[in-house]
Design a protein around this nucleic acid. Structure first.
Length: 420
DNA sequence: TCTGGGGTCCTAGGACCC
DNA sequence: TCTGGGGTCCTAGGACCC
């Protein structure tokens, strides 16, 4: 049996843990740049505020209902996530951390009747050790565990825990799950299924393999088999290295000048380099994209450029250099830019590098330099040492974060950086 | 004034090989 | 009258996830 443990309203719950005055107050957490709603407490949901709603369009309700508003604070949420996952790991070593607020746990060796009780123990422990409320769904496959988890949260009787084991219980659960609420069915497939009069998970599970394969590809077929109780998706205990890494942001204000874009590109390139070093990879391809604001009624422009790097690298300095080369080939004057980003791909382990015959001696030195830089930044706070190309911490194009909470759980230097 | 930021996998079609 | 049969690799685009 597999359990899916999912934190309730995760970001909103994190803000609440350290601020008891928020207990019964509606809370929202905003996306980067304070753009739109990405987490809501139960009270906020009850007020009818939708996921993804632009902040500027709900300001009236915020005032009216005294909603507590927070900019996203990923340092805090990341740390709280680690605490939750570490607590879960006490219950079984066989777990897959699926996202910042979800884990699959292998409960294979537990006896049937104790499953509900065991799930209750997990739920209580997470709450008392971390302050985060969770919901737990237990079933034979990941897809069914997802369904159980969703119903556990919806039903007041379930109190956040649902074990799907008896065939008749599974049948009821499938009949109560609309196709668009199945894990793996998005907007397009939901539309297609409905046009064929397939409305619930129960209906879908009864379609023929051939029909599912043809209309939903092999991915859909695996999912349908899981609905029928046949496990097709393994627990991924070790997360595989990423194949692409992207760092992109919207700007805090409209940007016209090449020099601002250069600073932003350098900053994102260095973030990509850091992420590469963290997973022990080097990249041999770097892409840069820039775009205007598609919501604005102004001249639109989007372009991207991909550059192949002669020797795979994870050095800030190399990536900044190539990223800016790419940027200068696509920059056009006269547009108002909203966002840019850097993507590195064609990743390989840094231990298996193919060196370029014509590399100078400085290539090896980059490794030591970056190692030192990472150590300094770890010790004294983010980006205490960096390439001058990245500009200042006070650049006017940086993200807006007007409602940021303190980083309650992490170092002082992070608090300073977050405020900057 | 104001609308996020990351990822993965699959398929179809074209270019190329023998 | 008639124009083979098999592969691989790459890319763009579309679907999905949190």
């Amino acid at each position: 049996m597999i359990a899916l443990v999912d934190c309730n309203n995760f970001y909103a719950s994190c803000e609440r843990v350290f601020n008891p005055a928020l207990r019964n107050r509606p809370v929202v957490v905003l996306s980067n740049n304070d753009g739109c709603v990405i987490a809501r407490s139960a009270e906020t949901k009850a007020l009818g505020i939708k996921m993804g709603a632009p902040y500027f369009m709900i300001k009236e309700q915020v005032k009216q209902h005294n909603i507590a508003v927070f900019s996203s604070n990923y340092t805090l949420y990341g740390d709280m996530s680690n605490r939750v996952m570490k607590t879960l790991a006490e219950f079984t070593p066989n777990l897959e951390v699926y996202s910042i607020d979800e884990s699959f746990l292998d409960l294979g060796h537990f006896y049937n009747k104790n499953l509900h009780q065991y799930a209750q123990e997990i739920k209580d422990t997470i709450l008392s050790w971390t302050g985060i409320p969770v919901g737990i769904g237990v079933a034979k496959t990941k897809t069914l565990a997802k369904i159980a988890n969703r119903l556990a949260k919806k039903s007041s009787k379930a109190m956040g825990i649902l074990v799907l084991q008896e065939p008749r219980h599974i049948e009821v659960a499938l009949k109560r799950t609309a196709v668009e609420d199945i894990w793996g069915i998005g907007r397009q497939h939901a539309k297609l299924l409905k046009s064929h009069n397939i409305a619930t998970a129960y209906d879908l599970a009864r379609q023929s393999d051939a029909w599912v394969r043809k209309n939903l590809t092999v991915v859909g077929l695996r999912m349908v088999k899981e609905l029928r109780g046949e496990p097709c998706l393994d627990l991924e205990k070790i997360s595989p290295a990423k194949q692409n890494i992207c760092t992109s942001r919207s700007f805090g204000r409209p940007v016209k000048a090449l020099s601002d874009l250069q600073e932003a590109t350098a900053l994102y390139a260095s973030k990509c380099a850091y992420k590469l070093r963290k997973q022990g990879s080097c990249a041999s391809v770097v892409s840069v994209f820039i775009t205007t604001n598609s919501f604005a009624d102004t001249k639109q422009y989007y372009n991207s450029k991909t550059i192949h790097i002669p020797t795979p690298t994870n050095s800030d300095l190399h990536l900044i250099q190539y990223a800016n080369l790419a940027l200068s080939s696509i920059y056009e004057e006269g547009y108002i830019y909203k966002k840019c980003g850097v993507i590195v791909s064609d990743l390989a382990p840094e231990t298996a590098l193919q060196l370029d015959l014509f590399d100078g001696p400085e290539t090896g030195k980059h490794k030591d330099l970056m190692h030192t830089l990472d150590n300094l930044n770890k010790r004294y706070g983010q980006a205490i040492v960096k390439s001058a190309a990245q500009g200042s911490n006070k650049a006017s194009w940086l993200l807006r974060k007007e409602h940021i909470s303190p980083c309650y759980t992490t170092r002082l230097s992070d608090v300073i950086t977050a405020r900057l």
